[in-house]
Design a protein around this nucleic acid. Structure first.
Lengths: 255, 255
DNA sequence: GCGCAATGGTAGACGGCTCTACATGAACGC
DNA sequence: GCGTTCATGTAGAGCCGTCTACCATTGCGC
């Protein structure tokens, strides 16, 4: 995936993964063996050995042929740094956003290599805020209890918010289908779940995105809308699910 | 970076990047040229051409030698999907976590390839909640105004929280340095900023992590603590910055 | 002591992505 | 018409990370 002017002396994502695996193995059972790494990372031993050699060259592990593997001091520090990014992302996705543990883990594994120091810092500040501030905790709990998060146990938004600004009768909050051609609005939320929801998200329609209704086909069903500067077509059924705040006359040339 | 049993017919991260670049160029100036891609992605034309050929093979772009490049219908849909992931992450890091725009962009670029559908969905639900629920907005605004987020314009946590549970005199909230050997606690926050803060985070010390004080050196300065099952040493100065909630006698064998 | 199973390691190949160095084409000024 | 210039494309090489197929060591049961 990369390859750039790789100066051969760099910790790549793959190596980070190996290092992290070793870290976990050592933590768990004091010693890492090739077999364990093969199993944990689901690769062949032929892939592991050169990786170990390179980690050894980088001074991150102690590795001599046919002997047990462990981390050097800098190796352990580096691994802990990677591992803590991992934990942080898991915490974000699982504990805060309510994502299933399994999936949160997968995403965290993949993303941890790309999270910058600044990203770490800002996530940490967020968690610090939650730790210190009971408002924060209340907020998260309400968020997690809410139908938006867990479609299976739907609890209405109104129940989750202390004060709900979107009165159901606000005439500016309408579904995309109710727009007139030429009108636009900003997405507030996508009603509904499952495959249709995913399709709508895949098209780039998500909260805070601006949509404009261009026209309806004569038959009425496919609607043509403009999103992110390009035109896409939607079925009525989908347009019903997209809730938005209609532009006020003021913001005619909206984002 | 990958390479797996790559069946040659797959959209890799690098290709996704090229596709997204083309999407943005087309959006901006109606047409993408090799030169623009070279410039945008900061690579050589020799790298771009084979990528274009493979994108064309995948049916994502129209490309014939020496003619202008544009997206097929599926190419545009795919690109929009990737792009919306990108935007979503930017929104998280910049608008919600208050990360500088530049850095948020970089992180988003790197991470967008690894965010799963489920991850997207959960982030979206979070933004939907914020959109719908004034509590949410208040919360974010308080978070962003808070000293934790913006070290430069420190506003005390107490000011940002409607009700602050951590009374400053809570005897269980102490700095790591005040622990007695054998005692432990859960990190609440890291005081201070800059390089020292980053060093502490790099060691894996962040909110919700459990730390136990093992011993102090005779001189008193290096402290030895146990984090994530391994022992690390800290200077007094660092220990001062780590605020934690002391274990109650109940949770003696804490996580 | 010996042989077998399991574990660890080697050789060689392949695809992906990038590069440098060079070649081709097109467009514009004159 | 022709040459210069810039954009585009080609050839070949290198590294990474994976694989398959084979080889070497170890240690354990007997």
């Amino acid at each position: 995936m990369n390859a750039a002017p790789t100066p051969n002396t760099e910790l790549t994502s793959a190596l980070e993964d190996y290092l992290e695996t070793i870290f976990e193995l050592v933590k768990e059972r004091k010693v890492a063996r090739v077999k364990d790494i093969v199993k944990a990372r689901n690769v062949k031993s032929a892939s592991v050995i050169p990786a170990l050699r390179r980690l050894a060259d980088l001074g991150l592990i102690h590795y001599t042929k046919r002997e047990s593997i462990d981390l050097t001091e800098t190796g352990e520090a580096t691994a802990r740094r990677i591992y803590s990014r991992h934990k942080l992302l898991v915490r974000l996705f699982r504990d805060f956003l309510g994502m299933p543990a399994e999936l949160a883990l997968q995403d965290a594994c993949a993303m941890e290599h790309n999270l910058s120091d600044a990203g770490v810092d800002h996530l940490v500040r967020f968690f610090e805020f939650l730790q210190s501030c009971p408002d924060g905790h209340d907020f998260i709990e309400r968020f997690k209890g809410c139908a938006l998060v867990n479609a299976e146990s739907p609890q209405d938004i109104a129940t989750c918010c202390a004060k709900l600004a979107l009165s159901p009768n606000d005439p500016n909050i309408i579904s995309l289908r109710q727009l007139k051609p030429g009108q636009g609005g900003s997405v507030i939320r996508i009603q509904g779940t499952g495959a249709i929801r995913q399709r709508i998200l895949d098209m780039g329609i998500m909260p805070e995105v601006h949509i404009q209704l261009e026209r309806r086909s004569p038959a009425g069903d496919p609607l043509w809308v403009r999103v992110q500067n390009s035109q896409i077509s939607l079925r009525k059924k989908e347009a019903d699910m997209i809730l938005l705040r209609k532009d006020t006359p003021a913001d005619t040339n909206a984002p």
